[in-house]
Design a protein around this nucleic acid. Structure first.
Length: 572
RNA sequence: GCCCUUGUAGCUCAACGGAUAGAGCAGCGCCGUCCUAAGGCGUUGAUGUGGGUUCAAUUCCUACCGAGGGCACCA
């Protein structure tokens, strides 16, 4: 099978010393793809660029294997070489994808473990639309690496410790009652949390009260520990429900609280090594050499901090799992925290893995401001999911009334959730995004449902072709060489780039490239669908080849959406 | 003030330093005896500003202007 990666490797092996890159995706007028040559060499050789391009093109033509794969290799412009794949290689790659059980999967990451930390919600707060990003992006990145042969640990690191729980306990002791919490735990806890911050504006002593409750919790106070356990249990139940709806599972779910017992040792070590020192009553690590603000390790009242727990967590993960890389899929707002974490980690010799803050932009409200549970302007995630499913259900009812009620509910869930996931994954993760109902639940154009719909249409053809068509294919072999319509060629060319798109996503740890690739594939599939009739094609060899093509495209769409964590119903 | 992110079409977003800057939505004009019109075809329309590096800059550097976030006991 010829693919872009193969061609690239081949060219690189063939013209050593020339730096270049295979860059331009297929454009029908220019051949299948082009390479471009960087110019430093041209300068050294004092040759005009066009001449270098021609020189390289002729060197490539001299390679017999490349000549077999390519119909033409020509210098087309200063710095550019156009390469046109031979049609036979397109057909070869179609056959390879058609017969693969996991089309496009690789073993790139064989023997390597990576940890992806994502979602990581805070106990006692409901998940809101902002949490979609970490959860959905992290899940997709985990899927992608798994597909590329890595051993992937999906880690949900719950925010279940810290001063905020002291505040919550303080609030509960003042205004809470067991009845309300039992009735609607998350709602009751959030109300307490919000009230605490409201009252804080008039009663500054609450701050100290909250800190004191946390200090007590951390030093083992029975009453506080009981309350904390209760709040946590209730919150977890709500989270589980959310993850079930999103179809997301984790390998490991731990909380900050699990790291308590290992903290004193780390703190002692930091002090003994002279890495940490006292300052204003607190224990800090001075990072002025790295041009960073000091990192706080221990509060002046002796209680621990986020960073302390993260350091312990980091150390333990490296010890137990020996990953080659660790991705923290956490919002951009925590950039400083991770800079500090990595800097102190460096001092402790904890950089044995590639540690990466895979940051993403915030979800802002319609006015462009940060969402805040505390201020009550964050739309709860549950509400968004519910609305998405309702809207999807309405469209499906209109579109395909024959679907049974049960089936419709199932499809509506897949489509509604798919719309929300895709909407997020299509965007470059570093940009802030504005929360917009209509945009999030847009089912047309470049959207999750559009791709799901395309899949369903293709599968519908395959179904209608029926069992006898599969039998017929055994008797009359599909003849891929008959796929010569422009729409067929474009679809074939696009199909070829799937693995490349997945690899690109992994390398950049972004999802938008893959999301775009799948949308484009769906696009080409729809063009094909509109222009080429399949079922009434009387030429059996070609008809069977076309069936093979759409089944393969459908398979790649399903695989690709699967990597993004999106389901593909067979009928919509 | 410093740090992170960001500025591309009316709107929401793309574009390993490469060719004529791509999509979707909205607008305008088409396509229904036909495999699911959530579709297809056509069309209008854009790189915040000034320098610099480069054969080549939306991309890199720099200054300015604008937006969001963060910056010692929250996570």
């Amino acid at each position: 099978m010829y693919d872009i990666a193969w061609i690239r490797a081949r060219i690189m092996a063939h013209v050593p010393g020339i730096s270049f890159d295979v860059s331009v995706p297929p454009t029908p007028d220019l051949g299948d793809f082009a390479t471009n040559i960087a110019f430093p060499l041209a300068k050294e050789q004092k040759k005009p660029p066009m001449e270098v391009a021609e020189h390289v093109a002729s060197a490539l033509r001299a390679d017999p294997e490349l000549s077999t794969a390519c119909a033409s290799i020509t210098a087309s412009a200063p710095g550019f070489i156009n390469i046109t794949l031979r049609a036979t290689s397109l057909y070869a790659s179609l056959r390879a994808l058609a017969s693969a059980s996991r089309p496009g999967a690789t073993k790139d990451g064989k023997g390597k473990t990576i940890i992806v930390e994502y979602s990581s919600p805070n106990i006692a707060k409901p998940m809101h639309v902002g949490h979609v990003r970490s959860t959905v992006i992290g899940d997709a990145l985990a899927n992608i690496h798994d597909f590329l042969g890595y051993r992937v640990i999906r880690w949900n690191y719950l925010g279940d410790w810290g001063t905020q729980f002291g505040k919550l306990i303080a609030a509960y002791k003042r205004w809470g009652n067991p009845h309300d919490v039992r009735k609607d735990p998350i709602d009751a806890l959030v109300k307490l949390y919000v009230r605490f911050h409201e009252e804080l504006t008039t009663d500054a002593s609450l701050e100290a009260a909250g800190q004191e409750e946390f200090r007590k919790l951390e030093s083992g106070d029975t009453e506080n520990k009981r309350l904390w356990q209760w709040f946590k249990k209730e919150s977890l139940r709500a989270f589980e429900h959310m993850y079930a709806q999103l179809g997301i599972r984790f390998s490991i779910m731990t909380g900050e609280s699990d790291l308590q017992k290992d903290m004193p040792a780390l703190v002692a070590f930091l002090e003994a090594q002279g890495i940490a020192k006292e300052s204003e009553g607190a224990l800090i690590v001075d990072l002025s050499a790295q041009s960073l603000p000091p990192a706080l390790i221990r509060k002046s009242d002796g209680a621990s901090l986020y960073l302390t727990r993260e350091l312990v967590g980091l150390q333990k993960r490296l010890d137990h799992h020996n990953p080659s890389a660790m991705f923290y899929v956490v919002g951009n707002e925590q950039s400083l925290h991770f800079q500090q974490l990595f800097a102190v980690g460096e001092m402790l010799g904890l950089r044995t893995a590639d540690l990466m803050h895979v940051k993403y932009g915030l979800v802002l409200n319609a006015e462009g401001q940060k969402l805040s549970t505390r201020e009550g302007n964050a739309t709860p995630l549950a509400e968004v999911l519910a609305e998405a499913v309702v809207r999807a259900g309405a469209v499906i009812q209109k579109k395909n009334p024959r679907l049974s009620q049960k089936e419709r509910a199932r499809v509506a869930r897949a489509v509604g959730i798919g719309a929300i996931k895709y909407n997020d994954l299509r965007e470059l993760r570093t940009s802030d995004i504005r929360f917009d109902w209509d945009r999030m639940l847009d089912f047309s154009g470049s959207s999750g449902p559009y791709i799901q719909y395309t899949y369903a249409r293709l599968m519908s053809i395959a179904r209608k072709a029926g069992a006898w068509a599969r039998l017929s294919r055994l008797l009359v072999r599909p003849k891929c060489e008959l796929l010569t319509e422009p729409q067929e060629e474009r679809l074939l060319r696009h199909l070829l780039h799937f693995t490349d798109a997945v690899r690109q996503s992994a390398t950049s740890r972004t999802t938008n490239g893959l999301a775009l690739y799948i949308a484009e594939l769906a696009n080409e599939a729809n063009r094909f669908y509109e222009h080429v009739r399949i079922l009434e094609d009387t030429q059996t060899q070609r008809r069977n080849a076309r069936l093979l093509l759409i089944e393969t495209v459908a398979k790649v769409l399903k695989t690709g959406l699967g990597l993004l964590g999106i389901q593909t119903p067979e009928q919509i």
